[in-house]
Write a protein that binds this DNA or RNA. Structure first.
Lengths: 338, 338
DNA sequence: TAATAGCATGAGAACGATTGCAGGAGGTAA
DNA sequence: TTACCTCCTGCAATCGTTCTCATGCTATTA
């Protein structure tokens, strides 16, 4: 790197001490306006910019936030990740912080992230959708590095998550209002989300005065294939559902394909409802009714949370449950209508 | 932050100077093996990790690379960006570097990125698909910060780009081999890519012994809607094409919809060929034949380029043109077959 | 006039590492 | 014994900031 100007050069040329230059840079009011102008002029002339590494060293603060990403090679492609990233990046432009992305390698499908983070400088950490018993999260709960969990929860750390229970409940409620009484449900993988969505499903039934029928509920794994086979199973029973609600869009699309293969017309004979509003939702034929998760907003709020905590370490824990938004497209319709 | 141990603590406890500890950390062979063991033991006991900010300051090197992202709010969602990011992240795990993501705000659709980058520490820069006359790129061409352009070219900086000409040519060649003689083309926005793909299209025709017919070529803007209207236009002529080749998948899908609306069966009466192999390609009905751009590999190679240049500033310029890969799916078929 | 307050400034010690240089210990050769 | 070389180690300067403290100046008040 070419030798760039330092605060000393500015001080020398402006005939002041480095302390004064520093005060000017940091807008201290302890500096005479005439002196300030002189210094600013020199700064401009030299095109001087303070060295942020040196500043980090003395301040003990790097203004870098780290976004920790699960180690699946294609995780950056995941719909929700992208949207969250957009939200973070958008909100970050308000603050003098930058974001590092870190995808650790050693990841254990049971234990989560390795607890140590290599010592790269960072003032705060975003963790996206960690496992329930994540090692790193457990570790961070004991440290004082600010952390915000996105799409997960903690008793100690700040978090932002979808209100899964009420979102699923709203879907069931809406379907029931549309006249459906046999509502199939393809759940996701075991874990917090799946439990919550199933709970919401049951609450929705209850509120609608429908009874819970285990034959209408089956487990998936968020893959299109599993959605396909799960839907086939649901549709093979004698008392078939008139609508299938899947815990994500991909499984819903699998369900559409299963329905077509079995000769059911969607939505005339069978409605399908997804979850996520991923871009697959509008590309599918028919276009998918689904629950939009406010990922972008989650990213934005997470950034606000994290920055405010970095700047004030002793804030009380902050948590938000955001509601999902029902999006009605072609794959669902009122029962019996044409 | 809790007061973390510094090199002085290690030195004091191990009863050596900080210089010796530093040598141990950096695997200098100028240290007695007995001393080394003692120091390592203390390092382990204290769970000491060197402060990378301090190290950056003295070394003038941060081990941080910056990925510069165009300011469109949803850019992180763009298919090619995601894939490139996956590739970068994957390759980066081989090196002791981390990636910062920076999405500048002040961006001019004509002039590109603002030339100054806020002074956050970085040893090298990835720039994804900058404009041809980008201010930042012009500026970087004069500086010595290592840069690699992805999906763009420069006479000075390292770059990695698709071989657009030969990719488009291969498509036309393949379509011609399949018996098509009237090959429509929907080009992208003006710019390097569009020129190159059009050139490839023409070369393909030439090589196949077909003549160039301006009525078969039209311009798009990479949007689904424009693909739709462009296809309608191409299909309205008396001497219709038997296949439409679009410069990206989204326009190709628009073309499929146009064909359906006009009553053409795809691929029986009209074949469609896309470009990108985005995830829309497999979600479309029928699934899209297309050109796969090796984005993941581009990200990987870009990382290797950049790291090697950071570690050796005076390497000669490195450039790579990667070939696209033709992917045949349901939307294209041999002419006349059933 | 003397005491006090407030403002503007500079000197210099941090922050936590790396590294050039000097020097001591020990070995070998003359 | 002396000279010289090799191997190991520590001292202290350095990177570019920030920030505490001391100091000198001016204005205000009794």
């Amino acid at each position: 790197m070419m030798k760039t100007h330092s605060i000393k050069d500015v001080a020398r040329i402006a005939k002041v001490s480095t302390a004064t230059v520093s005060r000017v840079i940091n807008n201290s009011n302890l500096v005479d306006s005439w002196t300030r102008d002189r210094v600013l002029k020199v700064i401009k002339k030299l095109d001087y910019h303070p060295n942020l590494v040196a500043r980090s060293l003395i301040r003990g603060k790097s203004n870098l936030l780290t976004l920790i990403v699960p180690p699946e090679p294609n995780f950056f492609s995941a719909f929700y990740f992208r949207q969250i990233l957009c939200g973070i990046s958008h909100s970050l432009s308000k603050y003098p912080y930058r974001m590092m992305i870190y995808q650790p390698e050693g990841y254990d499908p049971k234990l989560g992230y390795p607890p140590h983070l290599d010592g790269f400088p960072m003032d705060g950490i975003f963790v996206i959708a960690p496992l329930l018993e994540d090692r790193l999260v457990k570790h961070l709960e004991k440290e004082k590095t600010p952390v915000v969990l996105i799409n997960a929860r903690s008793h100690v750390l700040d978090w932002i998550d979808l209100d899964n229970v009420s979102s699923a409940r709203e879907v069931v409620l809406a379907l029931s209002k549309m006249g459906h009484t046999r509502i199939g449900f393809i759940n996701g993988l075991e874990g917090y989300n799946a439990n919550a969505r199933l709970e919401g499903y049951k609450l929705g039934l209850e509120k609608s005065g429908l009874s819970y029928d285990p034959q209408l509920v089956t487990n998936g794994d968020y893959s299109l294939e599993k959605g396909f086979t799960a839907a086939k199973k649901l549709l093979s029973h004698s008392r078939k559902p008139t609508v299938i609600f899947a815990a994500n869009d991909l499984m819903a699309i699998g369900a559409i394909r299963a329905a077509h293969e079995l000769g059911f017309s969607v939505p005339r004979e069978l409605s399908i409802f997804g979850f996520d509003d991923s871009d697959a939702a509008t590309l599918s034929q028919p276009q998918l009714s689904t629950v939009r998760q406010p990922f972008f907003e989650m990213g934005e709020r997470a950034t606000d949370f994290l920055v405010s905590r970095v700047e004030n370490l002793k804030l009380p824990q902050k948590t938000i449950e955001l509601p999902g938004q029902l999006v009605f497209r072609q794959s669902s319709k009122e029962k019996g209508k044409n």
